[in-house]
Design a protein around this nucleic acid. Structure first.
Lengths: 207, 207
DNA sequence: ACCTGAACACCGTTCAAGT
DNA sequence: ACCTGAACACCGTTCAAGT
């Protein structure tokens, strides 16, 4: 007989509850958004009591922090492409596309990574490091473009400028502040705004 | 005798509850952050019942929407400076400083304006318009810099690129993704990242 | 017209208790 | 060691009722 009830004992003391909670949270994240993602809903999805999570995470913030850290690691991995021997501008374009695509594919995760939900007080070391790793990839790309040292102050500045630009653009689009032009590809959109920059910083044509 | 109790009847039927709620919300916003700002706390601060707000706003989202709209109007006003007859780059620098200063002075308001808390479904027309107004100021500034038409496609692209950059930079700083270098002025910081851009887009020095 | 109080369905989090 | 259930202090929101 033994009906498989909802509160199945299959998930009692399984031993790997933490990763299960994380993947459940990740699944719910894109539907609920980072603000409305609730610990209770995550627990219920796994089939576990509402308080079980507290034996694996200090609180909701910490679970979210692990989720964000995973996001930064994925972003870093996506950016860790082979050195294509293309022109500097092509490399910049390519990195922008990867970054922009990541944000567009997982907007809620991206919002979590860069948003208000992360309690900045007790930051997970894991998260701080994953974030630094992602920024490191940006520096590596920029250094390659310029044929310069990855850790020089100039490269850092250039990478921060690039990061600001692409993060701002992705942010404006996924928060629907700017409408993403319907019927346009990511490629065309990135190219268009990259052109916009050239207009903003005229390559010393007159004067 | 007539003690002035907390639930004072002074605030019963005053007639201007809506603006009072708005200013109370604005006051609480920077302490609580956009995510944790609660309608109940706002009502309590005004000295009114928890449900009174529903006679003036459809729900929490709408109140937040009005707050954000006010923020965009303030930002637009700050940007609406007289045309200083300076070099294009000086004008860009000046606009960036104003924008960056706004975000740094009211980080929670800025996060609300560009964040997840705004239910994008039923957007207030007021908010959409105030936002467009702010972007209009950016376009005006960029058009002035380039000596071009404010509504041309090129100016729009350049303005969007500029907006992406400064929004990204402000966003990274106020969300504490990038540490704002301690002991540095906004001026120095903006100049430094603006230089970073020059490095990213080399002014055609070598072929 | 404008506001209140009780009520409902949610939250995060704690704590004693169970296995 | 790992999980549960009851409980607490919060939420947003509704609705009938008061002025």
């Amino acid at each position: 007989m033994r009906k498989a009830t909802r509160r199945s004992r299959d998930t009692y003391h399984v031993g790997n509850l933490a990763p299960q909670l994380l993947t459940a949270a990740r699944e719910l994240l894109e539907d609920a958004g980072p603000t409305r993602l609730s610990l209770r809903a995550v627990s219920e999805r796994v089939g576990v009591s509402a308080t079980a999570a507290y034996h694996h995470f200090a609180n909701r913030s910490e679970l979210l922090g692990h989720l964000a850290a995973k996001g930064f690691r994925e972003l870093a991995a996506a950016l860790r492409q082979p050195h294509t021997e293309a022109s500097p501008l092509q490399q910049l374009r390519s990195a922008c596309l990867i970054y922009f695509g990541f944000a567009r594919k997982s907007p809620a995760l991206y919002q979590l990574m860069f948003g208000t939900e992360l309690s900045h007080e007790d930051m997970l070391p894991e998260l701080t490091q994953a974030r630094a790793e992602a920024f490191g990839e940006l520096r590596r790309i920029v250094a390659g473009m310029r044929g310069a040292d990855r850790d020089s102050a100039e490269t850092r500045r250039a990478a921060l400028a690039g990061w600001s630009y692409i993060h701002g653009l992705a942010s404006l689009v996924i928060h629907e502040v700017m409408e993403f032009p319907p019927g346009t590809s990511d490629e065309r959109f990135i190219d268009s705004t990259l052109q916009g920059f050239a207009l903003l910083f005229p390559p010393s044509e007159d004067s």
